[in-house]
Simulated assay, not measured.
Amino acid sequence: MNSVRVTAIACLMPLSGLDDDPFLVDDRSQHAMCARWAEARDYDLTCRLSVHQLRADHATLWQDVEAGLVDVFVVPNRRALENAIASADEFTARCTAAGVRLETADYDEPVYTSAMKSHVHRRLSMPTAGYNGC
């Protein structure tokens, strides 16, 4: 099987940013967007990373690439990439040098109602209290 293997990168912004930019706080929705993108192309989503201002050369990004396990990185959009990786331009250049495609899903972001923001807040603020996000 010659499947294309995809690593999704979502931005993990602090919960304090929920009112200003809920999509960047809601890594679950970002990953769903990336999964939808991969599924539409019949690619295998093999890894999901949620990071905030990670260095472009950080081992977390490159260990699976070096092992030959990643063909494509996908991010929800450029804005998410710029918040997930400390230097989006450096990361883009590293992807090119490594022969790994960097794609953006670029689907419409969800429109967050007060109820949706509350749901995200509960999910992120109570992870150790047994709340599973449902």
Rank of each mutant, 00 (worst) to 15 (best):
L18E: 00
R41K: 15
D27G: 09
Q53L: 12
F23A: 00
T46I: 14
S16N: 08
S50Q: 14
G17Q: 15
A8V: 07
L12Q: 15
Y43K: 03
A32R: 14
A8Y: 09
V4Y: 09
S3I: 12
W37M: 02
T46K: 06
R48Y: 03
A38M: 05
E39M: 09
V6K: 06
C47N: 09
H52E: 10
W37R: 04
F23W: 04
L45R: 07
D20Y: 10
I9A: 10
P22G: 09
C47H: 11
A38C: 08
V4K: 10
L24W: 09
P14Q: 10
C34P: 05
I9Q: 08
R28Q: 12
G17H: 15
D44Q: 15
D27V: 08
F23Y: 08
M13K: 15
H31Y: 12
H52F: 07
S50T: 11
D21E: 11
Y43H: 14
V4I: 14
C11N: 11
I9H: 06
S29V: 01
A32V: 06
D42G: 06
S50N: 13
L49S: 01
L18G: 01
T7K: 08
D44N: 09
V51D: 04
T7E: 05
R36M: 10
L54R: 03
G17N: 12
F23C: 02
C34D: 07
A35E: 15
M13T: 00
Y43E: 09
R41A: 03
R28D: 13
Y43T: 02
M33P: 00
D27R: 13
D19F: 00
V51H: 05
